[in-house]
Amino acid sequence: MSHVVPPMSDEKALLAWLAEMRAHEPVWRDEYGVWHVFRHADVREVLKDTATFSSDPNRVIEGSEPTPGMIHEMDPPDHRALRKVVSSAFTPRMVENLEPRVREVARDLLDAAGPRFDLVQEIAFTLPVTIIGEMLGLPREDQEQFGSWSASLIDIQMDDPTDPALAERIAAILDPLTSYLQRLCAERRAAPADDLVSKLVLAEVDGRGLDDVEAANFSTALLLAGHVTTTVLLGNIVNTLDEHPWAWDLAREHPDRIPAIVEEVLRFRPPFPQMQRTTTAPARVGGVDLPADVMVNVWVLSANRDPEAHKDPDRFDPDRGVRGAAQLSFGHGIHFCLGAPLARLENVVALEEIVRSRGRLVVDREDPSFAMFDQIVLGVRTMPVHV
């Protein structure tokens, strides 16, 4: 049995490897001392037990310190308090109210695209970064730079996730972004506007306000999560429908089925196929004893393809009905993705507008520009399509 993890770009080999590990070595320690968890029940348990499995990776990275305001790396009670600050901007009503603007942007982008275009560059990247940028109050002319920062982060080489040098490389990429946002936070503190950054700098968490560093780091997390997930997911939707042409007909003839199509693509090809936690104490997972202070890598992609959780899991089936707490692709428990309703809205609207204006899209897999990401995210880097 091979212990070499295939790259994300070789999806067939990756899925075969995950199935083998799930069946024969469902909890496995790699050469870097990182423990990998593959079965659905075990993945769900790790994500749910925040007391034993911390979201703070700095616990196991020598010389690393927690980043103030990075909500996805925080545990209760700090996580709960900070989440309250931003949750007011992601209420179902407020997300629902964004629908006309999301549709307007999607429609304009599709109208501007020619008969042949790169779906990622022309639509999938620009739509979510425009929406989250407007929510945060970022100038439109700076959005391309945000894409460059996030792309550099995804492209960073990740061998040993506990290597202090890796944390330094990530910090070097994020420093210009957080510095930019710190300046914006200072401006909004002096002259508040009707945007999310202003709400952050004026908010109070347990009786105290966020300083500019915390607010900027929080904004960084929202900006990256707010557009990377939707960018990758929309590419995965078109990629999956291209492989299953009948699903284009389903979306066109029964637009009310589009949300179910999006949910099934989330299960079938989750944008983030793995999530990291660290143990705060000795733990037992899948009958295997794990020591304290080790990194645990839960394979959401493997859990989503576990036949113990989903019947015939390698079949794309929009009637499967996986959503809510059963949808592990947005996380589970207290760390369930804050922006999940927005990501769902953006992808549903985008698919509706693609069907309305183009009928369907055909992916040109023979085009030399077609490429998938090798690591971190499961999805297409560039996707040439035509009507």
Rank of each mutant, 00 (worst) to 15 (best):
M158D: 06
D160I: 14
T162P: 03
D163R: 10
P164S: 10
L166T: 02
E168M: 15
A171R: 13
A171V: 10
I173Q: 08
I173C: 09
D175T: 11
P176G: 12
P176S: 13
P176D: 13
P176K: 12
S179G: 14
S179A: 15
L181T: 03
L181P: 00
Q182M: 15
R183Y: 07
C185P: 00
A186H: 06
A186R: 08
E187F: 03
R188M: 06
R188E: 03
R189F: 07
R189L: 09
R189K: 09
A190W: 06
P192M: 10
D194H: 04
L196M: 12
L196H: 05
V197M: 13
V197E: 03
L202D: 09
V205W: 15
V205C: 06
V205I: 15
D206I: 08
G207F: 13
L210W: 11
L210P: 01
L210Q: 02
L210V: 01
D211H: 06
V213F: 13
E214M: 08
A215S: 05
A215G: 04
A216H: 05
N217T: 02
N217A: 05
S219T: 05
S219L: 06
A221S: 09
A221C: 10
L223G: 02
H227E: 01
T229D: 02
T231L: 11
T231Y: 04
L233N: 08
L233A: 08
L233Q: 09
L233M: 12
G235V: 06
G235P: 03
G235E: 11
N236A: 12
N239Y: 14
T240Q: 02
T240P: 03
L241R: 01
D242N: 05
D242K: 02
E243A: 15
H244N: 14
P245I: 06
W248S: 09
A251M: 12
R252F: 13
D256R: 05
R257V: 12
R257F: 11
I258L: 08
P259W: 11
